[in-house]
């Protein structure tokens, strides 16, 4: 199970490198979405590993809230590009 967590950490590093290197704002938003989902799934995996339901509930909440934050931020940035180009 620890090996699974370590593999998840390695997978988490891929979008972090992508977010650091790519200058395009939408590529960074994609990396943000990937990281937000991956961290939430990691919290769920750790909660199963430790058999701790409190952490599990928090993981589910963060998974949904992270997606909501992403939608809000994407909407603001989309409006911003429309104003700039229009």
């Amino acid at each position: 199970m620890t090996a699974v967590i370590l593999a998840m950490i390695a997978a988490l590093l891929i979008p972090m490198v992508e977010a650091f290197q790519d200058e395009d704002i939408w590529q960074r938003m994609l990396a943000f979405a990937s990281i937000a989902t991956k961290t939430s799934v990691m919290i769920l995996a750790v909660s199963v590993l430790r058999d701790d339901w409190m952490i599990g509930v928090v993981g589910v909440l963060i998974l949904s809230v992270g997606n909501a934050a992403l939608m809000l931020l994407a909407h603001v940035i989309k409006r911003l590009n429309e104003v700039t180009e229009g």
């Binding site: 972090m16 977010a19 704002i25 960074r28 990396a31 943000f32 990281i35 934050a69």
Partner: peptide, 8 residues
């Protein structure tokens, strides 16, 4: 966007 990553 990076602040969102830091928060996650």
């Amino acid at each position: 966007v990076i602040r969102g990553i830091l928060g996650a």
